[in-house]
């Protein structure tokens, strides 16, 4: 195995695993759809990174944070549904990106760049994904409780603001890293598909959490290996791999 492939696989496994694990919470809050627009919103950042030659994730991160803050502020002011606001904000992001994204280099921003990831980016991805995983794992029960009923969670002593912040912070990191793995257009799938597949075949919460992460990891490995074998872009192949797993779980799904 080449060093490049080892780095790609390492980044891919950590990003996809953490994204899928986070996805189990986002699916329960019907928030998976928000990850997509946030990924799109990361595009101007990714574009800047490509123009000035630094890491796509690094470029994407501040834009995702900006997007989350914007959506949060707009939600407080307008009380429009989160999905509608996200759609509005993301359209602005995509439009801005296309103003200055060099079209010949757009592919990396749109479908990811995981096969060209460097050692420092890999290290950063591993550290950030571990942080997200540990934080989400520790706060999982409380975030789930907030998802089920926010007021009840608050009365049970859960610091709802803290956990919402943790949750949004984790989404921001995962979306920014996801842009590197599968591109700005496909981050929602990275979060949603493994969780949806795991939900189809899980009876209990621990099964659901474990299977989602496992499906995310297997899809990343399969997609990256398929990309090196075929020369096709890795991002879409990772998503296709998880979509195939999802289809495989459909016969076992409970209505």
């Amino acid at each position: 195995m080449t060093t490049e492939l080892a780095l790609s696989l390492t980044s891919g496994v950590f990003i996809a695993g953490a994204a899928a694990y986070l996805g189990t919470l986002m699916l329960s809050k019907r928030m998976a759809v928000v990850a997509g627009p946030l990924g799109h919103l990361a595009l101007p950042g990714a574009a800047l990174a490509l123009v000035y030659g630094f890491s796509i994730s690094l470029g994407a991160f501040p834009f995702v944070i900006l997007g989350i803050v914007l959506i949060w502020l707009l939600e407080m002011r307008t009380k429009l549904p989160m999905e509608a606001l996200t759609a509005i904000v993301f359209a602005g992001g995509v439009a801005t990106a296309f103003l200055f994204l060099p079209i010949d280099r757009a592919e990396a921003a749109l479908v990811g760049n995981i096969l060209n990831v460097g050692p420092y980016e890999t290290l950063a991805a591993v550290v950030l994904c571990l942080l997200v995983f540990i934080a989400i794992n520790r706060g999982y029960a409380n975030i789930m409780l907030v998802n089920i009923h926010e007021d009840m969670a608050r009365i049970e002593g859960v610091n709802v603001r803290l956990y919402n912040l943790l949750y949004l912070g984790a989404i921001a990191i995962i979306v920014a890293l996801g842009v590197d793995l599968v591109g700005g257009l496909l981050t929602a799938a990275l979060v949603a598909i493994p969780a949806a597949a795991a939900r189809n075949v899980s009876r209990t919460l621990p099964q659901y959490r474990f299977l989602a992460a496992a499906i995310g990891i297997v899809s990343a490995v399969a997609g990256i290996l398929a990309a090196t074998a075929t020369g096709l872009p890795a991002g879409p192949l990772v998503i296709i791999a998880s979509a195939i797993v999802f289809l495989g779980t459909v016969p076992f799904a409970r209505p």
Partner: peptide, 26 residues
């Protein structure tokens, strides 16, 4: 202790959440 309005079995129907899991959240 608070039993809120509108929290019922339909609220958690989408989740693979057993009764044991629900107690484990606490």
């Amino acid at each position: 202790g608070y039993l809120p309005q509108g929290l019922n079995q339909a609220s958690v129907r989408d989740l693979p959440l057993t009764v044991a899991d629900f107690f484990a959240l606490k």
